[in-house]
């Protein structure tokens, strides 16, 4: 049992196990399920996420509100072109996350990871990396378990809710989960995984939740995209040996404190930030006729 990152690291260090190994054993013990059942259930969730990450790459599906569509398709056809600054892999990862998010806003089937508003980041990162390194299904299941373990620690000691902590708590947490999982997939140590996660949250600390018209859509889709890039950057930094000065457990508490200090207008109320701009207000009027 672990209630913070330090305890998780201790358990890993003492047993010589990776994060996913410790996490699945703890889950099995406390929820009285077998390890096979847990892996099977993760696999089912992965199948749903994989479909969502591919669904709008070649076909536009407009959102329910009618405000957005076609972003995944645009990036997917742009990636690999001569002008593109990011590598094809990074842009593919972004395209996956946007596709997953577009499925979400068009009332398709997704898996909250950790929330619906941040659902594209984790699968976008992990599916890309699994393809890049030819990981088998079992490796991918392990990576999702590691990511979820990081999420449980944030939920327990801080918050994953935009209404409580702003976007940093949703997309920031998803980014930290993805960064840690990718670091582990690439052979990083437990310590490096935690550095990657800490840096991912540090990089977006203070990010507000200001959805236009109060809808989980704008700017959430693009914050999923930057969440992917942030996670990739932090995994690479950690694997290169860069450390986060403040340890993970302290970073997430700081994130929580920052979230609580944000005014309510910047916490998923659809009032401040982009939602409060003339364009944001006009969009609300158009959708709701107010």
């Amino acid at each position: 049992m672990y209630s913070n990152a330090n305890e998780l690291k201790d358990l890993c260090d003492r047993s010589g196990k990776k994060i996913w190994q410790v996490a699945i054993e703890v889950e099995s013990e406390y929820n009285e399920t077998t390890i096979d059942e847990i892996r099977q259930k993760i696999k089912e969730n992965i199948d749903i996420m994989r479909q969502a990450c591919n669904k709008t790459l070649k076909k536009e599906i407009p959102s329910i509100s009618g405000l957005t569509s076609g972003m995944a398709k645009k990036i997917f056809s742009y990636m690999g072109k001569d002008n593109a600054i990011f590598s094809k892999e990074i842009l593919k990862s972004v395209a996956y996350s946007l596709s997953c998010f577009e499925v979400n806003t068009s009332m398709g089937k997704i898996v909250a990871a950790p929330t619906a508003g941040s659902c594209g980041i984790l699968p976008g990162c992990l599916f890309m990396l699994a393809e890049k390194i030819n990981a088998v299904d079992d490796d991918l299941i392990n990576a999702f378990i590691t990511a979820a373990a990081i999420g449980t620690i944030i939920e327990k000691n801080a918050t994953l809710s935009g209404a409580e902590g702003g976007c940093q708590a949703e997309c920031g947490s998803a980014s930290a989960m993805a960064a840690a999982a990718m670091t582990e997939m690439l052979g990083g140590s437990v310590e490096q995984c935690l550095h990657a996660g800490s840096m991912a949250i540090t990089n977006v600390m203070g990010q507000i939740c200001d959805p236009i018209a109060g809808l989980v859509e704008i700017p959430c889709a693009k914050r999923n995209a930057i969440g992917v890039v942030n996670a990739i950057l932090c995994a690479d930094m950690a694997l290169a040996g860069i450390e986060c000065f403040v340890p993970f457990d302290e970073v997430i508490v700081a994130m929580y404190e920052v979230g609580k200090a944000l005014p309510a207008t910047l916490r998923e109320t659809g009032i401040g930030g982009l939602a409060g701009t003339p364009t944001g207000v006009a969009a609300r009027r158009k959708i709701f006729g107010e």
Binding site: I64, A113, A147, L215
Partner: peptide, 20 residues
């Protein structure tokens, strides 16, 4: 333990918002 791994990776759902 809170909601465990599947409280984080889940639920499978129709979007766009777990509350809504």
């Amino acid at each position: 333990m809170g909601r465990g791994l599947f409280g984080i990776l889940g639920p499978p759902m129709i979007g766009p918002s777990s509350s809504h």
